[in-house]
């Protein structure tokens, strides 16, 4: 059974004129338990509209959303459950922190779930640990944290609900390189240790190549491509037509192939690149 599934999901924003295309149309998405699914596509392609359906923030105008096999719009209870089962972390989530202390802010979600106090405390500590925030941060005001820490505290707030699927909308946007790296590491670790499903919207193709088990490409409200990194980044020309790019490493390897160096077409990360060139060297490959 898929952790998250959409069937022919369509959404037309209300009060848009006749002939206005739907924001998303006919999306069939399937994320298996424990999978890390990346959603790419440029601004306005429908990525955010799509993920807002996954925890019932938007009601489809067509099609359906299933979480752990259950149609989330079945009844009131299933709608409420979707909000807890799918943890949605918006872009720049630190702007939404409002509590006096980091601890209270992280506890906000679990508290809303009606959990007992000691369970809330345990979850806050666990979530803080996942995002690498020391316990000494918890009594601080969110405003006293650095930009990267604030971002991680806000993500911890969603993790503390211990959702079956975690959805992150551009979690590394606007951070410095070290901050980006930290967030990528914590996502990988969270997924490894909890075995839960993660959906990630990103504009950074290096990040996508490094993290994704599966990639969904949105274009003009539709799912244009879906597959592994090899299946998606192997279609560089099509991606470029959609105004998207491939990882820099992939671009460099395209040039190498064009110049006659027999390298694999399936190179998406620096590590793969190093291994591939080392292989060529061992095999004594030479250009004329």
């Amino acid at each position: 059974m898929n952790a998250i599934e959409t069937q022919s999901l369509t959404y037309q924003y209300p009060n848009t004129g006749k002939g206005t295309p739907a924001a998303i149309e006919g999306i069939n998405l399937a994320a298996q338990p424990g999978q890390l699914l990346c959603i790419i596509g440029h601004t306005g392609s429908g990525k955010s509209t799509l993920v807002q359906h996954l925890n019932a923030l938007l009601k489809p105008t067509g099609g359906a959303v299933f979480v752990d096999g259950k149609n989330i719009w079945q009844n009131k209870a299933s709608i409420r459950q979707a909000r807890f089962w799918v943890g949605l972390c918006f872009q720049y989530p630190e702007y939404q922190m409002f509590e006096e202390t980091v601890e209270k802010d992280i506890a906000f979600g679990p508290k809303n779930m009606g959990l007992p106090g000691d369970e809330i405390r345990a979850r806050v500590l666990r979530a803080a640990e996942y995002v690498g925030l020391p316990e000494s941060c918890l009594p601080k005001s969110p405003f006293d944290l650095s930009g990267g820490e604030k971002r991680r505290a806000a993500i911890a707030g969603v993790m503390a609900m211990e959702p079956r699927a975690l959805v992150l909308d551009e979690p590394t946007a606007g951070l410095d390189p070290a901050g980006k790296e930290q967030i990528q590491q914590l996502i990988l670790r969270y997924r490894r240790e909890t075995g839960r499903t993660v959906l990630l919207i990103s504009h950074n193709m290096e990040e996508v190549a490094r993290l994704a088990d599966q990639i969904l490409v949105m274009h003009q409200g539709r799912a244009a491509l879906c597959g592994t990194a090899a299946e998606v980044f192997g279609r560089a020309a099509q991606l470029r037509e959609m105004g998207l790019s491939v990882p820099v490493v992939t671009d460099i390897f395209e040039r190498l192939r064009a110049a006659g160096l027999p390298v694999s077409a399936e190179i998406f990360t620096e590590e793969q690149a190093a291994a591939e060139l080392a292989r060529l060297k061992r095999e004594g490959v030479r250009l004329p």
């Binding site: 410095d176 390189p177 820099v248 460099i252």
Partner: peptide, 11 residues
Amino acid sequence: AGLSLPAPAGL
């Protein structure tokens, strides 16, 4: 300085 290299330089 805690910075990365431009991607081609990093590779």
